[in-house]
Design a protein around this nucleic acid. Sequence first.
DNA 1: GCGCTAAATGTTTACGTAAACATCGGTGTC
DNA 2: GACACCGATGTTTACGTAAACATTTAGCGC
Lengths: 350, 350
Amino acid sequence: MATTEGTHVTRKAARPSMGDVARHAGVSSQTVSRVSNGHSNVDAATRARVIDSMRALGYRPNSAARALRSGRFRTIGVIMFTLRTFGNMRTLDAIATEAAHANYSVMLIPVVDATLEHVSGAFSRLSEQGVDGVIIVFEAHLLDNAEFTLPPGLPVVVIDSNAGDEYTVVDTDQAEGARQATEHLLGLGHRQVWHIAGPESSFSAVHRTESWRRTLKDAGIEPPPALYGDWSTESGHRHGLTLGGRDDVTAIFAANDQMALGAMRALHELGRDVPGDISVVGFDDLEEAHSFWPPLTTIRQDFGEVGRQAIQQLLCKVDEYGFDDEDNRRVTVPTRLIVRESTASPRVRS
Amino acid sequence: MATTEGTHVTRKAARPSMGDVARHAGVSSQTVSRVSNGHSNVDAATRARVIDSMRALGYRPNSAARALRSGRFRTIGVIMFTLRTFGNMRTLDAIATEAAHANYSVMLIPVVDATLEHVSGAFSRLSEQGVDGVIIVFEAHLLDNAEFTLPPGLPVVVIDSNAGDEYTVVDTDQAEGARQATEHLLGLGHRQVWHIAGPESSFSAVHRTESWRRTLKDAGIEPPPALYGDWSTESGHRHGLTLGGRDDVTAIFAANDQMALGAMRALHELGRDVPGDISVVGFDDLEEAHSFWPPLTTIRQDFGEVGRQAIQQLLCKVDEYGFDDEDNRRVTVPTRLIVRESTASPRVRS
DNA sequence: GCGCTAAATGTTTACGTAAACATCGGTGTC
DNA sequence: GACACCGATGTTTACGTAAACATTTAGCGC
């Protein structure tokens, strides 16, 4: 067991600073700084000597001091409502990977629930922790009544929401995806497409629903009422029972794969064949979707690209920080129809 | 469009510092510091005045300066191999939430692949960024050949691995879970339980496999060879085709839900009934597991508790940093059998 | 060889905070 | 009423870095 004195010594054996390296290499600490930051105006021999000393002493730059001095943290904050959805997880993964590439770290700020209080808390925690920019992954309207005090001038990119013109927005092309799904079913010969929608509080859900409706209208079909779920398999199951009980339903477009899965379970329970009696299309392309029974036809979102774009847009803003804050873009990432075995042409009516 | 001068002014309108607040409130900056840190030895009236000034000026403490001065960052690092598994996502969610409770931020360090190079890179990025402690979520043996230079003395907690006695380890009780799954099947009357295992490079997988084997032996049954997969539905599907083709197979324990799902798809394709012909048990309890067809009997892991325990252990180490570094514990989180409809008693042989 | 330029390096300083120490009243004790 | 003491507040200083400025040295044209 360590004595107090012992621990004190342990603590004292702190990380070496630039000064230590400089002394070891026989140069000034400013030269060490230049080497550390890769400035060009250092003699090759000197640089090598400094690097050797860094190695020898196990020098690591102190990010706090660096941030204090330079005002840059090389860190971006990510505010997320929940990590529990497939899409958010994939997006976060892409963001973190892409940020690491650019030599940025990612600070994760979870928002437990979508109350104003919690969101404000996240923002304030964020502005205390040092970040150079923020990516907000919202699916709600909360940015509208923007009571939030984001530190003014802090670069922001929003994913999965439409925050008007105030911020740069990156998002999957929800409308395009919903159109692909609906047209795929129409193309197979279905005369009508029913829709299990996501919650009306979600922008992506609303976009998908609107696009489904528009696509039907463009095809001269009067859209039936949408059935609103909450993304869960359970809600898909509930609506699946309703739709499966009707003879005139031959095609269902669910706003995500989970609800599609729940609907398919309901259809199984009702003894309806998928796709023989009813075709089902999902949205997302979960890892497991190709192993559902039957393997699910769905719309693949390119979460990786969304994350990449978000980082790219954000870092571009960070670099030009203070020069042209008003330049907010809207980046749209395309979707892809993945055809599997849950869709087929409708049976010819007897 | 902003002029250069304009932007300069914008930049100049920087965040107020303690000095500004102090001047505004007519006190010394040290008093502001005391208020900011909640020290008790400040007069109530003074404190109120300072807080008012903070509000008026929109003061936010500068974390870089604070960290530089105090040596504490109020940040913990999380090193993860991948965010793309259900378990890791849930664990991360719990860690982030729990950390926020304790007023800590989470810095996410992704490791693209499990090469020594990348892991070292993550560690070095980590030690440059300031963190007070690290949670490592590994499933591989990499910690053994610990070439890695974690900053000495940095508190570490490892999840999902067994890193010997060097670190505190928090993990799901893999052995218990596998035993529950196997005994559930035996209890239903199955005479043999086949196992679709996770990769041998994964500690959790190995634990589950060993426990399955031991449970069978304890029941006086000679375990059949395990079929090794890679966690993916695809590998589950492959082994499902093999097992489904044999008449003597009535019960399958898959090491995770995805492989169970893949196996069930294979069984469907072969026309075998689940659970009529063959019972299937998974491991994890994905959100969707209760909507698989049939709803999957599985072992639920309490990822939330794992995250909570990890944070708790880590913060406890952080607080006693330097006093008793050698106190490494092993925390085990229990599992729970969730019985659904993919398991049943075996059909009586004709 | 003179001065000029540019490259390499050193010196000074400030970033915002909090610990350590200093000061100044007031309060209780005998 | 002198003294010690304590609580509230101010003053000084250092944390590790990098920008700004200063200095030295080498190279080069004339």
